Structures are given as structure tokens and as C-alpha cells.
Simulated assay, not measured.
Amino acid sequence: MSRFSGKVIAITGAASGIGRATAVKLAGHQVALSLCDVSDEGLRETERLCRAAGASVRSARLDVSDHAAVNAWAEDTHDAFGGVNAIINNAGVSLSGAVGDLTLDDFEWIMGINFWGVVHGTRAFLPYLRASGDGHIVNISSLFGIIAMPGASAYNASKFAVRGFTESLSEELRLERAPVRVTCVHPGGIDTNIVAGGRVTPSESLGFETVDQAARDFKRLARTSPEAAAARIVRAMTRGRRRQLIGTDAWLLEKMQRLAPVAYQNLMVSFARRSARR
């Protein structure tokens, strides 16, 4: 029997990409799923796939940057299923552009979803996870929560923040011996539509002028499927890992950053220059 059988797992950003793939992967373990996203259409399809795989499912249209809405969703999940064992804070968006060209609204938008969404989800579900006696928090950061890249300042800031928040949270819960494990996930290039659905501020020096161009450039580097990422996340949960890298690119660049934390930035600048000339 799967260690997940009978568990209640909540997932944000479940309408597509890593969120959908993880929901479907877990559905095969006879879990109960509480799913949310801002996309009704995508959420309905994920719900259909999960039910077909054998899971009990509830779903809600939800903006994770709204803390009151997230709190209400967590309470509804608990009341509907009688408890909650895990929250996977996956919802995220993309923003590309040079620091001087981005607006404060741009920064607030991405931090509201990528960072505050994780904070809201964690805080809303933590009491229920403690009460379960077997809780787990999975926060999706990024390879860009480990390395920085020109044109990704706002995205980097949000994902570095998720990493710092999650690692500190893990230490706190271990210090108090709480029955809640914490995993921070750092995917590399995953073949999703996150860039195509994000925002791009054109920049000649950075080599992109439209969302479509940025999405095409990202697709060339995204070598890992959402399904492969989901398998790694579920395995990390099973094994209680505190950090999970996903993709060969994530493993290689994380090692490079560790060995040359300043010099690696030269490589990022060279890569950006070559990309801009294409």
C-alpha cells in the first residue's frame, strides 16, 4: 500500500504544468486532493484526470496572493475531508525584463503570487498539518532560487525568497520537533507554459522583445517534462528530502554556483550576450 493512501493533499497552481502533473501522479496513490488555480478550464481538466486515476477531488478557483481566500480554502479543505496531511505550494508566474524597465506593479505582482502565495499557503495549512501528526509542506522554488540570471531579477527575487523562507521554516519545525516535514523544490527548465503565460518587458540588451520570443527561448532550454518533475517531487515527499533539484541543468548549475559563487555570474553574462546576438 502507498504511504500516501488515504492522505489529504492540497495543491496550488494545479490547472497545468507541474501542478497538474503532480496532482495526477498523486491521484494514482488513492489520495484525496484539494486543488486550486485561477484557471477554471484548466482546473476542471485536472480534476477530471485525477478522478479518472482514482482520487477523491475538490477544486476551487483561487488567487493565492489573496490571504483571506487562501485561509478560507484551507478551512474548507479541512472541513470537507476531516484533516489535511500536505500542502504543495506550486502556483507561480514568470516575469522577464531589465530592472530599470520593470515597474513597481510588476514586482508586486510576481511577489504576490510566487512568494506571498507560498507564505499564505504555508500559514493557512500549518495548523492542520500539525494536527494531522504526519504533515508535509512542499514549496516550489526554482533553479533561479539558487542562481541569478540577467533579465530575471524579479523572478529571482521571488524564488530566492521562497528558498530562504522554506529553509528557515524547516529549521524551526525541526527545532520544535513538530510532526511536519518540509521540502524545498528547485526545478530547472521544465517544459511548461509558464513563460508564455507570464509577462515580458522588451529589452534589446537582453535579447527578447515579446512574450512569444521569450517563450521560444525558454522552450529550447526546457528539457524536463512536467511528469518527470512530478515523479521527483513525489519521491522527495516519500523520502522526506529537505531539498530536491529537478533536471540535469539544475544539478549542474547548482554545483557550479556552489563551487564558484561569484565566477558563475560571468558565465550567465556571456550566455545572455550570445542569446541577444541571435
Rank of each mutant, 00 (worst) to 15 (best):
S2F: 01
I11K: 03
A14P: 13
A14S: 06
S16E: 13
V24K: 02
V24H: 04
K25Q: 09
L26N: 01
G28K: 14
H29W: 07
Q30S: 06
V31Q: 05
C36F: 02
D37L: 07
S39M: 04
D40A: 08
E41W: 08
G42C: 00
R48Y: 07
R48G: 01
L49T: 11
L49C: 00
L49M: 10
A52W: 13
A52K: 14
A53W: 03
V57C: 11
S59H: 09
R61T: 11
L62V: 13
L62G: 05
S65V: 10
N71P: 13
D76Q: 15
T77Y: 02
H78E: 11
A80G: 12
G82R: 09
I87R: 00
I88C: 03
N90W: 01
N90L: 06
G92V: 06
S94I: 05
S96C: 01
S96D: 06
A98I: 15
A98M: 10
A98Q: 12
G100Q: 14
D101Y: 00
T103G: 08
T103V: 09
L104W: 12
D105P: 14
D105W: 03
D106C: 03
D106K: 03
D106F: 00
D106I: 04
W116I: 13
W116K: 10
G117D: 07
V118M: 06
V118I: 13
H120Y: 02
R123Q: 15
R123F: 11
L126Y: 09
L129Q: 10
R130E: 12
S132R: 08
H136K: 08
I137D: 00
I140Q: 05
S142K: 07
L143K: 11
I147M: 00
M149A: 14
P150G: 09
G151C: 05
A152C: 14
S153P: 10
Y155V: 07
R163D: 09
E167Q: 04
L169R: 01
L169M: 09
S170I: 10
L173M: 12
L173S: 06
R177G: 06
P179I: 06
V180H: 03
R181A: 11
V182M: 02
C184T: 15
C184V: 13
V185W: 01
A196Y: 05
G197I: 09
G197K: 11
R199Q: 05
V200S: 01
S205T: 15
L206T: 02
L206I: 02
L206Y: 03
D212V: 12
Q213H: 10
R216K: 15
D217M: 14
F218V: 08
K219A: 14
L221R: 14
L221H: 09
T224V: 15
P226N: 11
E227H: 05
A231M: 04
R232E: 13
I233W: 00
R235D: 13
R235F: 06
M237E: 00
M237I: 11
T238D: 13
L245S: 06
L245M: 10
I246N: 01
G247K: 01
T248I: 09
T248V: 12
W251A: 10
W251T: 12
L252S: 08
L252I: 15
E254H: 14
E254S: 14
K255E: 12
K255S: 13
Q257F: 04
R258H: 08
R258E: 10
P261G: 00
A263N: 11
Q265I: 11
N266T: 15
F271I: 15
A272D: 01
A272K: 13
A276S: 04
